[in-house]
């Protein structure tokens, strides 16, 4: 099975680390993976995105232009990536950061209040893990244990004490996946 995902938002929202966690998790499960960050002009304009591919077989091109899933954390990224989701694919977006929701009718669209949920957990920075949890809830491509193992690699040692709260965030995200506002 092949999953092609783009994660996009502002710098500081945990876009790149969310992608890296997903890619590392895929590697833990012996999938072929690739993680391609934006590092060009868009980074310097304050937005960031990364492309993650998980594949049971060898990945041919790490450069892709259409996605099974777009995880969107800000409005400029919605404008950029809404049209690039494959028909039948999905967009998961963060409610607070999106004023104009997507309008496509041939894809699944999920609106996740991840910021609000992160505040409830008393740590805003786990917003990205809530969204990642939602993604994994909807697309059970990886086990949560693999993601937790990935976090030990992605997070620097000094932040390892935060893994339990990240786990809580992932689990909350997975719960939200079962009760989203599907448009």
């Amino acid at each position: 099975m092949k999953q092609e995902i783009v994660i996009a938002g502002f710098g500081g929202q945990g876009v790149l680390s969310m992608g890296m966690t997903l890619a590392y998790g895929g590697m833990v499960e012996n999938k072929d993976v690739s993680w391609m960050p934006s590092y060009g002009p868009e980074m310097r304009g304050g937005t960031a995105n990364c492309t993650v591919i998980l594949n049971d077989e060898k990945i041919s091109s790490p450069i892709i232009n259409s996605f099974d899933t777009a995880i969107i954390l800000n409005q400029p990224s919605m404008a950029k990536f809404e049209s690039k989701v494959k028909p039948g694919g999905q967009i998961i977006y963060e409610s607070n950061n999106i004023l104009t929701p997507p309008t496509r009718s041939d894809i699944t669209i999920l609106d996740i209040p991840a910021n609000k949920e992160a505040v409830k957990l008393n740590i805003k920075r786990v917003m990205n893990m809530i969204i990642l949890g939602t993604y994994l809830g909807l697309n059970p491509v990886l086990k949560i244990e693999s993601i937790l193992k990935a976090l030990t690699k992605v997070l620097p040692g000094r932040h390892h004490h935060l893994i339990p709260i990240n786990q809580q965030a992932l689990e909350r995200g997975m719960e939200l996946a079962t009760q989203p506002t599907i448009m």
Partner: peptide
């Protein structure tokens, strides 16, 4: 090239 330099793979 820049992509091979910047991207992560196993």
């Amino acid at each position: 090239d820049g992509a091979l330099g910047q991207m992560m793979e196993p």
